[in-house]
Structures are given as structure tokens and as C-alpha cells.
């Protein structure tokens, strides 16, 4: 029998990792924001349909990945701040302002962070497609494309090659395109997730791709897409569409 009393240590870990992967690519006048729908903890699948991509306004879509509870709470809080902005200013917050808002909201929790990687995609006020990516404490950057989450290491180098044309030499007398057309980008997104599903156990089940089109752009590139569904109610401003796909199950 131990006669000396030992101090007992207790610990509570408030975080978890729920897997999954998100990805966004900006075009000249559109942006694609995508994420898989599997939610897991360790080797257990909690659900095969838990969205990680959320439309915020008619021109902004937010993808959140990491700890799902923090992610859902964070989206809720961002949506609340955007609603207050609408009541105060009678318009939607511009994309770059949403990006800065997210940075302040994340940094406000610098010492008890939301354990989430955010990717914000949409249309800028000048009509260009834009992607903003964040780390959990609010460091952010505008980019042309970004992958995050469990399969980031699988997808990002593929995107470097297919979007930025890294390590590719243009044919003599030509140059690489700065922006790719919508159907090409949709194919790259589907290929990225198919590859990630094949090799990563935390990625799979469903794929949700949100497409944000600039004002007056028209729907070129979406006509022949199977099962595309429009979320915006008016054709006046920017328009949001969602495309859903099953990810391979073998």
C-alpha cells in the first residue's frame, strides 16, 4: 500500500479531427468551392453526409475543415455577423471584407482557437473570381487555388501542376493560360477528389461543388453538367450553383 499521496492529473482535450478535404479554385469570372461529405473520427465514420461547404451570400461560399463542431459553430457565427451587416447597410458584405472579418474572428480566439482550416471562395467587387485561404488563427492570403484538410498533401501538388502549370514548359511561341475555363476546372476538382478518395481513408462518400458566377456572366460551362442546381433566386446579380456527385465506393 502506497502511504504517500500522489497528485492526480486530469486532462480534457477539447478538440478532435473529423477528417475530410476541401478545395477551391478561382477562374476569371467564377469560383469553384468543393468539399467531400464524409465525417469521421479515428477509424469510425460518423456520417456519410455532413456538408463542409456553406453558401454565405450570393457571392461568397465558405468551406471549413478540421474539427467539425468548431467548424459548424464558426460558420454560424460568420453568418450571424453577415446578417447584422445586412441590417446595418442594406447590402451583402463584399468578399474581401468577409475575408478580413474571418481573420479577426479567428484571431480573437488566438489562445483557444477554432480548430478549423477555412477556404473562402466567391466573386470580388470587381467581378473577378477569388479564393482566400486561412490557418486556424487567421493568417490569410488571396490565391488562385488551395486545398486543405486530410488529403491536402495529396491534392495540393496536383493542383500546382494542373492550375499553376508548375514544371510544365509551354509549347514554343505560346504561354500558359492564367485562368482556365469552368468545365476544365470542374474536371480537375472531380479528379482531385477521386484520387484523394482512392488513397485516403478519411475522404469519400459524397462530393459537393459550389460554383459562383460573376454578375452577367451567363451559365456557359454549366449547361451540360448533370444535376446542377441553382441556389440563387434572381438572375440579376452573382449566381450560385451546386453540383453533387457520389465518390467511388470500391
Amino acid at each position: 500500500m502506497d502511504s504517500i499521496a500522489h497528485p492526480t492529473q486530469r486532462q480534457f482535450n477539447p478538440y478532435s479531427d473529423n477528417g475530410g478535404t476541401i478545395l477551391a479554385i478561382a477562374g476569371a469570372d467564377f469560383t469553384v468551392i468543393a468539399g467531400d461529405t464524409r465525417q469521421s473520427e479515428g477509424y469510425s465514420i460518423q456520417t456519410r453526409y455532413a456538408p463542409k461547404v456553406f453558401p454565405l451570400t450570393d457571392r461568397a461560399v465558405l468551406a471549413v475543415n478540421g474539427f467539425a463542431a468548431d467548424g459548424n459553430m464558426f460558420v454560424k457565427k460568420v453568418k450571424q455577423r453577415l446578417e447584422w451587416y445586412r441590417h446595418a447597410h442594406s447590402k451583402d458584405m463584399p468578399l474581401r471584407a468577409i475575408a478580413r472579418l474571418i481573420q479577426t474572428m479567428l484571431y480573437a480566439r488566438r489562445f483557444f482557437p477554432f480548430y478549423v482550416y477555412n477556404i473562402l471562395g466567391g466573386i470580388e467587387e470587381d467581378g473577378t473570381g477569388a479564393v482566400y485561404s486561412f490557418d486556424p488563427v487567421g493568417s490569410y492570403e488571396r490565391e488562385a487555388c488551395r486545398a486543405a484538410g486530410a488529403a491536402q498533401s495529396l491534392v495540393q501538388p496536383f493542383l500546382d501542376n494542373q492550375i499553376y502549370f508548375n514544371n510544365q514548359q509551354p509549347a514554343p511561341g505560346t504561354s500558359h493560360p492564367v485562368h482556365l475555363p469552368l468545365p476544365t476546372i470542374l474536371s480537375i476538382v472531380i479528379d482531385s477528389f477521386t484520387g484523394a478518395t482512392e488513397r485516403h481513408i478519411e475522404v469519400g462518400d459524397g462530393l459537393e461543388m459550389y460554383v459562383v458566377l460573376a454578375k452577367g456572366r451567363g451559365v456557359q460551362g454549366l449547361e451540360d453538367v448533370r444535376g446542377v442546381q441553382e441556389l440563387s433566386v434572381t438572375e440579376e446579380g452573382e449566381r450560385i450553383f451546386v453540383i453533387r456527385r457520389d465518390l467511388k465506393k470500391d
Binding site: A151, S153, L154, V155, Q156, P157, F158, N161, Q162, N167, Q168, D191, S192, T194, G195, A196, E198, R199
Partner: peptide, 26 residues
């Protein structure tokens, strides 16, 4: 892990030697 991701996206069956060279190099 990076090699798996890129190879999964670029590789296809029955590549000829020159195309295989380009695929593995990229």
C-alpha cells in the same frame, strides 16, 4: 503522400515510353 496524390491524378494505363517518361517526371 504527395506522390500518391499526383500519380493518382496523372497516371493512366498503357502509356508509351515517351508518355510514361513525361508522366513519371511530372
Amino acid at each position: 503522400s504527395k506522390l500518391y496524390g499526383v500519380a493518382e491524378g496523372l497516371w493512366e494505363p498503357d502509356l508509351e515510353p515517351e508518355d510514361l517518361f513525361e508522366t513519371i517526371s511530372q
